[in-house]
């Protein structure tokens, strides 16, 4: 059952956990090292028996990682815009809200990308995800333009591109 690839993966996970432990503890005292090694081995051993999402291997290509970084940068910019917009609405004495519900469908197939996209919608201008079932996406928008913006949002295409690279 334990093939060569699994051992390589286990060593990688162990190295990642150990590096993280060293980053957090920031000493090379032998007691710290001992505790870190024991915990990392334990977690690696437990992790090797867990299968997530029907046993499909999650693969990452270099191009996918680049697209993901670009997606996150776009997301941070959108978060900044969203906050300024909400601040302008909240601090306006007339409180110019025109809220509503938008029901739309998402073109994304993988559960992970759907979850990422739904959380992106929550963080970005004037919209929060209320419900996500299969490809039916219920979104609450704080103004009319924000509600229409959900229907053809450019980050959706970006997420689709990342998904396309993965399969």
């Amino acid at each position: 059952m334990a093939g060569r690839k699994d051992i390589r993966g286990a060593i990688l996970i162990f190295a990642l956990l150990m590096g993280f432990w060293l980053l957090l503890s920031a000493t090379l005292h032998w007691q710290h090292l001992l505790v870190g090694t024991v915990l990392s081995l334990g977690i690696t051993f437990t992790w090797s028996r867990i299968k997530i999402g029907g046993g499909r291997r999650t693969s990452f290509s270099l191009k996918q990682t680049g697209l993901m970084l670009y997606y996150l940068l776009c997301l941070i910019w959108e978060v900044l815009k969203a906050n300024i917009m909400v601040a302008l609405i909240v601090l306006n004495p007339r409180l110019p809200v025109s809220p509503g519900i938008v029901i739309t469908r998402t073109a994304l197939k993988r559960d992970l990308m759907r979850a990422l996209y739904a959380n992106s919608i929550t963080l970005t201008p004037g919209t929060i995800t209320v419900d996500l079932e299969d490809d039916r996406l219920v979104v609450h928008a704080i103004t009319v333009p924000a509600g229409h913006g959900v229907l053809d949002w450019y980050l959706s295409d970006q997420a689709k591109k990342i998904e396309g690279e993965g399969s």
Partner: peptide, 15 residues
């Protein structure tokens, strides 16, 4: 200040 539950979520979730 916001009028209903969902609008309050906007202010909290983002800011």
């Amino acid at each position: 200040r916001m009028p209903d539950v969902y609008n309050r979520m906007h202010a909290l979730g983002k800011c």
